[in-house]
Each structure stands twice: as structure tokens, then as C-alpha cells.
């Protein structure tokens, strides 16, 4: 019983962190799926989302608003708007002018953008950690007193549920809406979609905006979960989310979700049963193994050579 509770606790830990990896990974995978480049500034967009949410929450608190759902919704909307605008602007400024060149050029442009955004927040907000108020506290306890108790906090439940809603909404959007269909068309063949009358520039912008909005959701959730933000907030999260996207098959949306969850659970199980020092060794080892046997990732489609 004890061992089972311990296992479930580590599973919950892993799924919580994994679902936020998945939310961030969507941004990497959608951009890659459509224009075949890796947007390394995505982790910074996530960090900016967290900062914006924090500023909104502080602003509302100073206005005397105390109703929690209102605070959360306003913070979420503000974060999504600012991050989306950032995502859109980054694409316009840093990627569109170099699109279609050698693949190294947009990559370097992306890394430059990431450094720029990080330092911009350093200057604008200072390099210190800024505290995030704990808005959702408490949770359930399982197991008897005195022995190991499993806890499932309301915050963790919020993270699962929000992620689930976002993922479902995104899948429906891609499968059913007109823009979603255009996205799929552009990802299959950009030139052909253009010939058929799809405004590909608009679709590419939309991709960046959607990815950034989801990153902002993750920024708000994780800001609240961890309780503080700093300008380097997005760096490791971005790296992990990118790994998750590659693991699941870069370019595939269900792949990003699966990759995020696998990465999160494997990390928490390794630190739970082996040692925290091997956490990254195991997750990146797993990545190498999967890429060795399935180079396109778990759910990635192999590219068909066109003759």
C-alpha cells in the first residue's frame, strides 16, 4: 500500500510537469510542422507570458479585486494577448525576412531572438526572482496518518484540467476549422497551398500566435505552481519542451502531448526510484534510444521522398 501510494505520487508529479511540457511543446512542433524551423525563442515567450500574468495579478490586487475566477481569467487573457503579440512580432521581425534561406539562418536568428528577449526582461524587470502569489492552495490527502501520505493539490488538478481543455480545443480547431484545415494544407506543401489561394503568411503568423498563446497558459500555470518567476524561467522549460516535441515526433501535435507526458513521468520516476542526478541522463538517453530506432519520433510521419 505504501509503495503504491509512493508510486502514484511520483506518477502525479510526473504527469503535472509533463502536461506543461506538452503545452509548451505544441509551439515548437506546430512551427516546425509548418515552416520546418525550430523557434528557439519559444521558451522566452513562455517566460514573458508568466511575467505578464504576474503583472496583471498584481495590478488587479492593487485595484482591490479579490474574486479569484476573475483574477485568473483576466491574468490568463492578458498573458495570452501579450504573448501572442510577441509571438507574432518575433515571426515578423526575425523569421519572415530570412524565410526560405539556408536553414541555418533562421536558426541563428531564433537563438539571437531568444537572447534578446531574455536580456530585455532582465533590463525591464530586474534579474531577481519575483514572487507569484499562491492563488490556489490546498488539496486532497490520501493514506493514513503517520505513514506516507499521497497529496494531490488543487493546483495540480487545475494544471491537468487546463491542459486537457487546451489540447482538446486545439485538436478540434486543427481538425474542424477553416484556418485549421489551411494549417494542415500549409504543413503538407507550402508552395502548393500558396498556389491554391491560401494566404500562407497569415497561416504562419497564426501558428506562431497559437503556439505563443498556449505557452502563455503554461506560463501562468507554472508561475502559480512554482511561486516565482525570473528572466531565465523559460530556458530549461523550453529545452525540455523541445525534447518532448522531438521525442513525440516533431511536427505532430498528438506527438507533442505524448512526448511531454513521457518525459515528465520518466523524469519523476528516475528521481523517485534512482536519483535526481540521473533525471536528465535517463530522459535524454530515452530520447537518443527512440531517435535511433524511430528517427521521426514516436508519432512522427516519415517524410516521403518525392521523385
Amino acid at each position: 500500500m505504501q509503495d503504491l501510494l509512493y508510486f502514484s505520487q511520483q506518477l502525479i508529479n510526473g504527469l503535472t510537469i509533463g502536461s506543461t511540457y506538452a503545452l509548451i511543446a505544441i509551439g515548437y512542433t506546430m512551427v516546425y510542422g509548418i515552416i520546418g524551423m525550430i523557434n528557439f525563442a519559444h521558451g522566452e515567450i513562455y517566460m514573458i507570458g508568466a511575467y505578464t500574468a504576474l503583472i496583471a495579478i498584481t495590478g488587479l490586487a492593487s485595484l482591490g479585486v479579490a474574486w479569484l475566477p476573475l483574477i485568473l481569467i483576466v491574468a490568463l487573457v492578458c498573458a495570452m494577448i501579450v504573448s501572442s503579440a510577441m509571438g507574432w512580432a518575433v515571426e515578423r521581425v526575425a523569421y519572415r525576412p530570412v524565410r526560405g534561406r539556408h536553414r541555418l539562418i533562421p536558426l541563428i536568428s531564433a537563438i539571437g531572438m531568444s537572447i534578446f528577449l531574455q536580456n530585455y526582461v532582465h533590463l525591464a524587470q530586474g534579474s531577481r526572482n519575483i514572487g507569484f502569489p499562491a492563488l490556489i492552495e490546498g488539496g486532497f490527502q490520501f493514506g493514513s496518518d503517520g505513514a506516507f501520505q499521497m497529496s494531490l493539490s488543487y493546483m495540480q488538478i487545475t494544471i491537468f484540467v487546463t491542459t486537457l481543455i487546451c489540447m482538446t480545443a486545439l485538436s478540434l480547431f486543427i481538425a474542424r476549422s477553416r484556418t485549421g484545415r489551411a494549417c494542415r494544407a500549409v504543413s503538407q506543401d507550402l508552395g502548393m497551398a500558396n498556389l491554391l489561394g491560401i494566404d500562407t503568411n497569415r497561416i504562419i503568423s497564426a501558428t506562431f500566435v497559437i503556439g505563443a498563446a498556449l505557452a502563455a497558459v503554461a506560463g501562468l500555470l507554472l508561475g502559480m505552481y512554482y511561486g516565482s518567476v525570473d528572466p531565465l524561467f523559460g530556458f530549461i522549460a523550453g529545452l525540455k519542451a523541445f525534447t518532448a516535441a522531438v521525442l513525440g515526433g516533431i511536427g505532430s501535435i498528438p506527438g507533442a502531448m505524448l512526448g511531454g507526458l513521457i518525459l515528465g513521468v520518466s523524469e519523476s520516476m528516475t528521481s523517485g526510484y534512482l536519483s535526481g542526478e540521473y533525471k536528465d541522463v535517463v530522459s535524454f538517453g530515452l530520447l537518443i534510444l527512440i531517435l535511433l530506432f524511430k528517427p521521426t519520433g514516436l508519432l512522427g510521419k516519415p517524410e516521403v521522398e518525392k521523385i
Partner: peptide
Amino acid sequence: FEGITAGDKDFSSLVTK
């Protein structure tokens, strides 16, 4: 006696342990 990675944010597994 265990190490963590500086810069990490999630220590829930460590805390559980």
C-alpha cells in the same frame, strides 16, 4: 545524499522522496 540541477524548477519528485 543527492544532487539536483541548478536552474531546475520542479522538485516535486525530490520532495516526495
